[in-house]
Every structure is written in structure tokens, then in C-alpha cells.
């Protein structure tokens, strides 16, 4: 199997994998970064969302060969001490229920706020509708994104 070097959470990691292996399984099975979750394997539910070169992407649908050139950030690397404004807002509002989709939700929300420091409800709908929450934590997610935006803008 060929060997690839990826930059994940600012650390270079070299792994052996088939070229079509999705990033998700490299993160989870090879590197033990299990904060990123498997939900559908088709890029539909957004549970596997990570950042690639500063954009939210679905890691279950991205072959390893497509993410060699840039920086990958997972939930484990979003902040040093779990204190990203989005994570803080999530904690303040006790957002998760089962929690399984929440890494994907937080990564999508962090991506939104990095590009739009004061999103409207409509902006939130567009950015977040790709991440499915089966428990129905959406109302708190919306509030938490507004809260994080307010904190960032202070």
C-alpha cells in the first residue's frame, strides 16, 4: 500500500492506505482520532465534518489522495483547551443530547463563524442544514451559534 503524509491538527502524520480510503477512516481507525464520527458514508449527514484548508468538508466522502496538500483540523484540534468560542457556547447552553453528531455540528458552526462573524438565522440554516441531528438539538445549536458570534464580536 502506498504511504501518504497528511497535516492533521498541525502535526504531520504518515500513513499507509489504499488511495481511495476516505479521510474519515484514516482519522478513526489508523490515527485514533475518534471524535470524528461515521454516520452515512455518503456525505449526506455531516456527522464526519472536519476542516480542510479552513473549509468544512465531509471526511467520509474525501479520499485520502484529495487532502494531501493542505491542513486538516478535526474536533480534537479545534482549540487547545476546548475553549473555542463555539465549544464554550455549546457548553454554556448544554447543547448535546446523545452527542454523536456534535463534533460535526461544532466543526460546521466554527466554519460558519470563521467566514461570517454575525450570521443571521438564514445564514445558519444554509451552513448547518447539512449536519443531521437525530435527537433534535437544533434550537440550542442555533442559540449557541448566535451566542458564540456575540462573544467573538465583543
Amino acid at each position: 500500500m502506498p504511504s501518504y503524509t497528511l497535516t492533521i491538527n498541525a502535526v504531520k502524520r504518515t500513513v499507509s492506505a489504499d488511495p481511495d480510503t476516505p479521510l474519515l477512516w484514516i482519522l478513526r481507525d489508523t490515527l485514533g482520532l475518534t471524535g470524528t464520527k461515521y454516520g452515512c458514508g455518503k456525505g449526506i449527514c455531516g456527522t464526519c465534518t472536519v476542516h480542510y484548508n479552513g473549509n468544512a468538508v465531509r471526511s467520509c466522502a474525501l479520499p485520502i489522495t484529495s487532502v494531501l496538500e493542505g491542513n486538516i483540523v478535526t474536533i480534537e484540534g479545534l482549540s487547545e483547551k476546548g475553549n473555542h468560542s463555539v465549544q464554550q457556547a455549546w457548553m454554556k447552553l448544554d447543547v448535546p443530547q446523545c452527542g454523536y453528531c456534535q463534533s460535526g455540528q461544532i466543526m460546521a458552526a466554527a466554519d460558519l463563524l470563521s467566514k461570517n462573524e454575525n450570521p443571521t438565522d438564514k445564514d445558519i440554516n444554509v451552513a448547518m442544514q447539512g449536519v443531521l441531528c437525530r435527537c433534535g438539538t437544533y434550537s440550542r445549536i442555533r442559540k449557541a451559534i448566535h451566542l458564540a458570534a456575540n462573544k467573538q464580536n465583543k
Partner: peptide, 9 residues
């Protein structure tokens, strides 16, 4: 589990 959940741990 809140802190663990929001940090993916």
C-alpha cells in the same frame, strides 16, 4: 459528559 462531548473525547 458535556466537556468531553464538545471536545470529541
Amino acid at each position: 459528559d458535556l466537556q468531553q462531548l464538545v471536545t470529541g473525547k
